[in-house]
């Protein structure tokens, strides 16, 4: 299914670590302003896939990729300004990372590095991002304290706030709820529904039900292969095209 209005288009994507091929030729589209779910057991190539999307795979030594990744119809691996491109993709890694800077600087770091200096604009941006990440109320009185001293759940929300700080067009979340409690997870899920208005969201999740709650369409990866991609409701209602998908969503393995 080729959609010309796709925000992100991936075609025949392969990736290797050394000699080991971990993604075996995947093709899919992500539509603008949708939440696109990716599910699959561990080691199925989900994180590697995300890394090829924002061109950070090259930081892993010995890694290699092949295939086409397009954003807005442009081959992203032909973009010269790689930093400018990465800015357009927000990435939230599974483990929370507070940078050893103040909470304020954690969020202001990326905008500053892109040349934003105006104090008022920065203040406003920092507050907006922290509010969106459901963290503002907890930290507004201690923006000067270290980001690394926050609790795990708070650091995860700080990571989300950082990912929003550079105004991405696409936001990738890699199992963001792994380190936070259910209540906060629900809060962030609400935020994601709101953010969908202004950006495209790719949600890799370990919680199958989370994909069901949020994503309109979902893709199921297994051992680096795309097993099935399609309407989330259909996939979860038990009449998925591939029997493996049915087994996975019903909890038979994974």
């Amino acid at each position: 299914m080729v959609n010309d209005s796709a925000k992100i288009r991936v075609e025949n994507l392969k990736a290797w670590y050394g000699q080991r091929e971990v993604v075996h030729g995947i093709s899919f589209d992500v539509h603008p302003n949708e939440i696109f779910g990716i599910i699959g057991p561990a080691q199925s190539g989900k994180t590697t896939l995300l890394k090829t999307l924002n061109r950070t795979l090259e930081f892993t030594s010995g890694s290699r990729m092949q295939g086409l990744v397009e954003m807005d119809g442009q081959d992203v691996y032909n973009i010269k300004d790689v930093y400018g491109y990465r800015r357009r993709v927000g990435m939230v890694a599974p483990l929370p990372v507070g940078l050893p800077l103040s909470i304020y600087d954690n969020v202001a770091f990326a905008p500053r590095s892109f040349g934003l200096k105006d104090k008022d604009t920065l203040d406003e941006l920092v507050q907006k991002c922290l509010e969106q990440a459901a963290l503002w109320d907890e930290v507004k009185d201690r923006l000067d304290s270290l980001g690394t001293k926050l609790s795990g759940g708070q650091q995860q929300r700080l990571t989300i706030a950082r990912a929003l700080s550079h105004q991405p067009e696409v936001l990738c979340l890699d199992e963001f709820s792994i380190a936070i409690d259910p209540v906060t997870t629900m809060k962030i899920e609400d935020v994601l529904m709101e953010l969908r208005e202004s950006m495209t969201i790719i949600l890799v999740t370990n919680l199958i039900q989370q994909a069901r709650r949020l994503a309109k369409r979902t893709m199921f990866l297994l051992n680096g292969d795309l097993v099935e991609e399609g309407d989330t409701e259909k996939m979860f209602s038990g009449d998925a095209a591939n029997p493996k998908t049915n087994e996975f969503v019903s909890g038979a393995f994974g």
Binding site: N54, T56, F59, Y83, G84, Y85, R86, R87, R88, V89, G90, M91, A93, L95, V97, L99, P100, F109, A110, S113, F114, T159, R162, A163, S165, H166
Partner: peptide, 13 residues
């Protein structure tokens, strides 16, 4: 290493 990765993910050079 995670600090660097977090920073690279934001498009910081």
């Amino acid at each position: 290493m995670s600090f660097r990765e977090a920073s690279w993910n934001m498009g910081v050079s």
